[in-house]
Protein backbone atom coordinates (compact mmCIF):
# COMPACT_ATOMS: atom_id res chain seq x y z
CA UNK A 1 0.00 0.00 0.00
CA UNK A 2 1.02 3.57 -0.66
CA UNK A 3 1.96 5.85 2.22
CA UNK A 4 3.23 9.43 2.30
CA UNK A 5 5.94 10.79 4.62
CA UNK A 6 6.60 14.54 4.76
CA UNK A 7 10.25 15.55 4.26
CA UNK A 8 12.56 18.51 4.03
CA UNK A 9 14.34 17.17 0.92
CA UNK A 10 13.90 14.37 -1.62
CA UNK A 11 14.92 10.77 -0.87
CA UNK A 12 14.72 8.29 1.99
CA UNK A 13 17.73 9.87 3.73
CA UNK A 14 16.07 13.29 3.95
CA UNK A 15 15.05 14.64 7.38
CA UNK A 16 11.36 14.29 8.17
CA UNK A 17 9.46 17.61 8.00
CA UNK A 18 7.14 17.99 10.99
CA UNK A 19 4.60 20.18 9.18
CA UNK A 20 2.23 18.49 6.74
CA UNK A 21 1.00 21.01 4.16
CA UNK A 22 4.12 23.19 4.43
CA UNK A 23 6.51 20.28 3.90
CA UNK A 24 8.87 20.99 0.98
CA UNK A 25 8.63 17.36 -0.19
CA UNK A 26 6.19 14.48 -0.07
CA UNK A 27 7.88 11.07 -0.18
CA UNK A 28 5.44 8.49 -1.55
CA UNK A 29 6.44 4.94 -0.60
CA UNK A 30 4.92 1.66 -1.75
CA UNK A 31 5.29 -0.35 1.45
CA UNK A 32 5.16 -3.70 -0.32
CA UNK A 33 8.12 -3.08 -2.62
CA UNK A 34 9.83 -0.22 -0.77
CA UNK A 35 9.76 1.82 -3.98
CA UNK A 36 9.86 5.58 -3.22
CA UNK A 37 8.96 8.68 -5.23
CA UNK A 38 9.88 12.16 -4.00
CA UNK A 39 7.58 14.93 -5.15
CA UNK A 40 8.17 18.63 -4.48
CA UNK A 41 5.16 20.20 -2.72
CA UNK A 42 4.15 23.14 -4.89
CA UNK A 43 1.80 24.39 -2.17
CA UNK A 44 4.33 24.70 0.66
CA UNK A 45 5.01 28.44 0.23
CA UNK A 46 1.41 29.44 -0.44
CA UNK A 47 -0.90 31.59 1.65
CA UNK A 48 -3.73 30.20 3.82
CA UNK A 49 -5.97 27.29 2.88
CA UNK A 50 -3.22 24.95 1.69
CA UNK A 51 -4.16 22.19 4.17
CA UNK A 52 -7.18 20.88 2.24
CA UNK A 53 -5.33 21.32 -1.05
CA UNK A 54 -2.41 19.24 0.20
CA UNK A 55 -4.86 16.56 1.33
CA UNK A 56 -6.43 16.55 -2.12
CA UNK A 57 -2.96 16.22 -3.66
CA UNK A 58 -1.94 13.16 -1.61
CA UNK A 59 -5.40 11.60 -2.02
CA UNK A 60 -5.08 11.84 -5.79
CA UNK A 61 -1.70 10.17 -5.53
CA UNK A 62 -3.47 7.15 -4.07
CA UNK A 63 -2.13 7.41 -0.54
CA UNK A 64 -3.71 5.21 2.14
CA UNK A 65 -1.80 6.48 5.19
CA UNK A 66 0.16 9.58 6.10
CA UNK A 67 3.17 10.01 8.40
CA UNK A 68 3.95 13.56 9.54
CA UNK A 69 4.53 15.70 12.63
CA UNK A 70 1.46 17.86 12.83
CA UNK A 71 -1.20 19.51 10.70
CA UNK A 72 -3.82 22.23 10.82
CA UNK A 73 -7.48 21.84 11.59
CA UNK A 74 -8.63 22.06 7.96
CA UNK A 75 -6.19 19.34 6.88
CA UNK A 76 -7.33 17.12 9.76
CA UNK A 77 -10.97 17.50 8.75
CA UNK A 78 -10.23 16.91 5.06
CA UNK A 79 -8.13 13.80 5.79
CA UNK A 80 -10.88 12.45 8.00
CA UNK A 81 -13.40 13.04 5.21
CA UNK A 82 -11.10 11.15 2.84
CA UNK A 83 -10.83 8.31 5.34
CA UNK A 84 -7.05 8.39 5.45
CA UNK A 85 -5.32 7.81 8.81
CA UNK A 86 -2.40 10.06 9.79
CA UNK A 87 0.38 8.91 12.13
CA UNK A 88 2.57 11.15 14.27
CA UNK A 89 6.30 10.90 13.91
CA UNK A 90 8.34 13.17 16.20
CA UNK A 91 12.05 13.82 16.29
CA UNK A 92 14.71 14.75 13.79
CA UNK A 93 15.18 11.48 11.99
CA UNK A 94 15.17 10.49 8.35
CA UNK A 95 12.32 9.35 6.16
CA UNK A 96 13.80 5.82 6.31
CA UNK A 97 13.56 5.89 10.13
CA UNK A 98 9.96 7.09 9.93
CA UNK A 99 9.15 4.30 7.47
CA UNK A 100 10.68 1.77 9.85
CA UNK A 101 8.65 3.16 12.76
CA UNK A 102 5.48 3.03 10.64
CA UNK A 103 6.15 -0.60 9.69
CA UNK A 104 6.68 -1.53 13.35
CA UNK A 105 3.17 -0.27 14.07
CA UNK A 106 4.25 1.83 17.05
CA UNK A 107 3.30 5.27 15.72
CA UNK A 108 0.35 6.91 17.45
CA UNK A 109 -2.48 8.19 15.29
CA UNK A 110 -2.65 11.98 14.90
CA UNK A 111 -5.90 13.43 16.12
Amino acid sequence: MMICITAQAPGLDAPVEPRFARAPFFIFIETGTGEAHSVANALCGGPGGIGPRAVQFVVEYGVEALVTGRMGEHAVRALRAAGIPAYAFAGESTVADALEAYRSGTLPELS
Binding site: G46, G48, G49, I50, G51, P52, R53, V55, Q56, V59, H74, R77, A78, A81, A82, G83
Partner: peptide
Amino acid sequence: CRFGAISVLRSEVFLFPEL
Protein backbone atom coordinates in the same frame (compact mmCIF):
# COMPACT_ATOMS: atom_id res chain seq x y z
CA CYS B 1 -9.71 26.84 -5.86
CA ARG B 2 -6.56 28.47 -4.53
CA PHE B 3 -8.08 28.96 -1.09
CA GLY B 4 -8.70 25.27 -0.32
CA ALA B 5 -12.41 25.94 0.10
CA ILE B 6 -13.47 23.01 -2.09
CA SER B 7 -11.64 19.69 -2.34
CA VAL B 8 -12.49 16.45 -4.10
CA LEU B 9 -11.57 13.60 -1.80
CA ARG B 10 -12.18 10.09 -3.12
CA SER B 11 -15.94 9.73 -2.97
CA GLU B 12 -16.98 13.22 -1.94
CA VAL B 13 -16.61 16.93 -2.51
CA PHE B 14 -15.58 18.56 0.75
CA LEU B 15 -16.35 22.21 1.47
CA PHE B 16 -14.80 24.72 3.87
CA PRO B 17 -17.25 27.63 3.49
CA GLU B 18 -15.17 29.88 5.76
CA LEU B 19 -12.22 29.61 3.36
